[in-house]
Design a protein around this nucleic acid. Sequence first.
DNA 1: TCTGGGGTCCTAGGACCC
DNA 2: TCTGGGGTCCTAGGACCC
Length: 411
Amino acid sequence: MRTIFHVDMDAFFVSVEELYDPSLIGKAVVVGGQKHERGVVSAASYEARKFGVHSALPLRTAAQLCPHAIFLDGHPDRYRDYSHRVHDVLREFSPQVEMASVDEAYLDLTGTERLLGPPLKAAHALHQRMKQCTGLNCSIGISTSKMVAKVCSDQAKPNGILWVQPGLEARFLAPLDVRRLPGVGEVTEEKLHLLGIRKVGDLAQLDEDFLRRRFGQWGLALAGKSRGADAGAWFDGEIGGGEDPKSISHEHTFSEDTARQDQLEVTLTRLTEKVARRLREHRLHARTVNLKLRYSDFTTLTRAHTLPRSTQLDHELIAESRALFRQAWKPGAKVRLIGVGVSGLDTCEGQLDLLDGGRNERARQALAAVDRIRDKFGEKMVHLASGMGGDHAERVHENPVGLPGKTPKKR
DNA sequence: TCTGGGGTCCTAGGACCC
DNA sequence: TCTGGGGTCCTAGGACCC
C-alpha cells in the first residue's frame, strides 16, 4: 500500500508576488496581464476570487467583475525560482518527487513512517518547513493513489491537509461532483450529466461495460477513477519520472489580428528560434515540426511535418516552419495566433553526422556562440538574418546563424 | 467581456509493410 | 480478382491540466 502526497501551492503566482511586494497582501490581485489586454487570468488572489475571478477567465471580464483589482503581468523567472525552492523542500522528505507543474508535486512517502512518523505528522512537518523556507502556503492531499491525493489537496485548499485513510477512497469520492475527478472537464461533465451522472458515486455504480461502450477506453479509466484507482495512462507509472519534455512549443497571440505576411513570418521565425534554443538547452533533437494558426473567428488548424532526420538547428527548423506556414495560410486571412512546436524528441542525432562534411557541426558551434551572447545581452541582441524582416528571408541559407563576419562560404 | 501559453494524452484514419 | 489482419508511423484535431 503506497502513501502518496500531492502538494499544491496556494495561489502560487500571487503569493510569490506578495513576497516581493507585501503591500499586495490582503488585496484583490490578478496575475496574467493588464485589464484591457487580450488574455486570461493566470492566478487570482482569494480576495479577487470572492468577486468571481478565477484562472482562465478573460482579463477584460475579470476587470468588470472586480474593477478595483490590481492587475500584474507576472514574473515567470520568479515563479521558476520559487518552484526550485519548493522542489528542494520536498526533496528533504522523499527522494521520489515528481513536479507535475511549477506549483504542484507528487511525493511517494511509502516506508518513511519510522523516519517521519505517520502521514499526518509528516504532512504537518512538511507544511511548516515549506512556510519557513519559502514563505509560501501549500495544501497537502494524502492517499494511496496519485489521483485521490490530488482530489484531496483540492478539497484541503487553502492552506490545509487532508488524509483519506486506506480503504476509504471510494467513500470519500462518492459524494463529490464528477467534475472533481482529474481528467473530467467541461465536455465530459456535460456528457455525464446528460446520462444523469452527477456524482462520483453515480459513476461507481455503473456497469463497466456500459461505460466502455459509451466512452471506449476512457470509460474504463473513468470507472477506475470513480473507485479511487490511478486509471488510464495519465497516472500510470512511478513517481519521479518527468525527465525530458516530450514536446516544446511557443505561440503568440497578436494584440490585433493581422494578415500581413511579413509580420506573420517574422513572428514565426522568432518563435522558432526560441523553440530551437530550448531544444539545445535540453540537448534534444526534434524530428517533427508543428505549425499552429488561429484565425479571427477562432478556428484553429495545425499542420505537421516529420523530417527524415532530427535536428536542433535554427535554420533547418525555420525552413520547415516557414514551409508549413506557406502551405497552410490562406493569403489575406486574418490571423489571431501563430505558433510552432516540435515533437518526436530524441537525445542523439537521428543519423550519422559525418556525411554532410561537418557543415552542421560548424552551424552548431556558431549557434552555441549565439546562445552565449543571448545569455549575456538578452534575447534581442542576436537574430537570424531572416528574423529581421522579409527582405532578408532568402539569406537564411547563406548565413545560417546571422553572425556578422562569420558568413560561411557559399556551397 | 471573447476566449493566453505551455504542456500531456487520446482518437481516428490513411499509408505502408509483412 | 473482388480484396485478411496486425503493427507502426504519420497527421489532424480535441479534451484536459495548470
